[in-house]
Amino acid sequence: MQKIVAGLVLWMGSLPAFSQFNDTTHHYLNYVSTGTINKTNEGSSYVLNNALRFSISKREYTFNTTNSWIYGKSLSNLSNNDFFSALDGNLYKTLEHFYYWGLASYEKSFSLKINHRLQAGVGVGYSVFDVEKLRVVLSDGILYERSDLYDLPEEGTNRYDVFRNSFRLKFRAVIREVIVIEGTDFLQHALSDRKDYIVKSSTSLSIKLKKGLSVTGSIVYNKLSKTRRENLLVTYGLTYEKYF
């Protein structure tokens, strides 16, 4: 066991450095494909999680677009058909470590019983740590939301507009330029009803195999109090990324 651990340490230390944003590199492309498959005598189940992210980073601003699709079946019954797309940007013309952000997103989810949900808002953020190998960011702001949820027999049609407070924790840690741990966590309470809230959490661990390619494990958790639905996905697969 000691020889194996020592070999892994030497291997990690021998790998070359990987690209990051710099004065000439302003674009970033990231594609993640993960999933799980389970087959027994009684039947089979599977979940596939695909996500595509593109970023433009300059000294004064950043622009990001994120798209994800989760699809799954359990014993031939649909369990997930969840789509999420978002555009967001940060403006850094403010005090050191502070920035302004704007967001617009669209979501539909079979597992959370969301027909359609649109969100748009603005706020401020603060970089608690902002060095090459460790970034921790806190942000808060106000979102306007228009939702069309699956109809609930006891409540009737569930279409409504609401303003929410959106708090976010975002982090990224790089260990020896080989292991990357990153995640984003949201808590969004309705301003008019504290019992109406949304929880989103996504955390991943990636180990770089070679430049641009990593093996990745991820945990995704979502909860929507309005429909009393939640999901938890633990998946593994591959990540491709490119700085240019």
Rank of each mutant, 00 (worst) to 15 (best):
M1N: 04
L10R: 15
M12N: 12
M12Q: 13
Q20R: 10
N22K: 09
N22F: 07
D23K: 14
T24E: 05
Y28M: 06
Y28D: 11
S33M: 00
T36D: 05
N38H: 10
N41I: 05
A51Y: 02
L52N: 04
L52E: 02
I56S: 10
E60L: 15
N64L: 07
T65I: 08
W69H: 06
I70M: 00
Y71M: 04
S74M: 12
L75A: 15
S76D: 13
N80G: 11
N81S: 15
N81D: 15
N81Q: 12
S85C: 07
A86R: 12
L91F: 10
Y92V: 06
K93S: 14
L95T: 09
E96F: 06
Y100V: 13
W101Y: 10
W101S: 00
L103N: 07
Y106F: 09
Y106A: 12
E107N: 05
K108D: 05
S109L: 01
S111W: 04
I114A: 14
N115D: 10
G121M: 07
G123T: 10
G125K: 08
Y126K: 07
S127Y: 14
D130H: 11
E132S: 10
L134V: 02
V137T: 12
L138I: 07
G141L: 02
I142A: 08
Y144N: 02
E145M: 10
E145K: 14
R146K: 13
S147Y: 08
D148C: 11
L149K: 05
D161I: 07
R164D: 06
S166Q: 08
R168M: 10
R172L: 09
R172C: 13
R176S: 15
V178C: 03
G183D: 00
F186V: 01
F186P: 11
L187F: 12
L187W: 14
Q188P: 02
H189T: 14
L191F: 12
R194T: 13
I198E: 02
S201A: 08
S202D: 03
L205W: 02
K211L: 12
V220H: 12
K223T: 13
S225R: 07
T227G: 00
R228S: 15
R228N: 11
L233F: 09
G237L: 02
G237D: 00
L238W: 00
L238M: 03
T239S: 06
T239R: 04
